[in-house]
């Protein structure tokens, strides 16, 4: 439900960037969303579409989202692997079951294409 306010934050940022670079049109907006950022990608995209229509500057803007997977790290030996759809039960290197998930909890505006 907070996706809308986060998308508003994104547009504030986009307007600032467009002004700074004297752009008339924003074409592509690239963001990274961590799987544990607590952000529903569909809701965020929907909010983006609604907000994009409000101004000429962003009316044709396309949102490209890269989902960032968390890393699964072993608390005992430090071995780290990407956690895809499931978290391994034990560390592949030392067999410890003390594993923790890290990172992938941010929403980052990485790149904007404009003209």
């Amino acid at each position: 439900m907070h996706e809308f306010s986060l998308a508003q934050g994104l547009f504030t940022q986009l307007f600032r960037l467009a002004e700074q670079h004297r752009a008339e049109k924003i074409i592509i907006v690239r963001v990274e969303i961590g799987q544990f950022a607590g952000i529903v990608i569909d809701s965020f995209s929907f909010a983006f579409e609604i907000l994009a229509r409000e101004r000429k500057l962003t009316r044709e803007a396309v949102l490209e989202i890269t989902e960032i997977k968390p890393l699964c790290g072993c608390l005992d030996c430090g071995h780290t692997v990407p956690a895809d759809d499931s978290v391994p039960a034990v560390c592949a290197q030392c067999g410890s079951s003390r594993l923790t998930l890290s990172a992938a909890d941010d929403l980052i505006l990485t790149q904007v294409e404009m003209e």
Binding site: L6, Q13, L17, H21, L107, L109, Q111, V112, E113, E115
Partner: peptide, 17 residues
């Protein structure tokens, strides 16, 4: 310069504020 497409690298967290 003002008309062609430019790619701006930002890499800023929207949760940073």
């Amino acid at each position: 310069e003002r008309q062609t497409t430019r790619t701006i690298d930002v890499y800023e967290s929207l949760l940073a504020a």
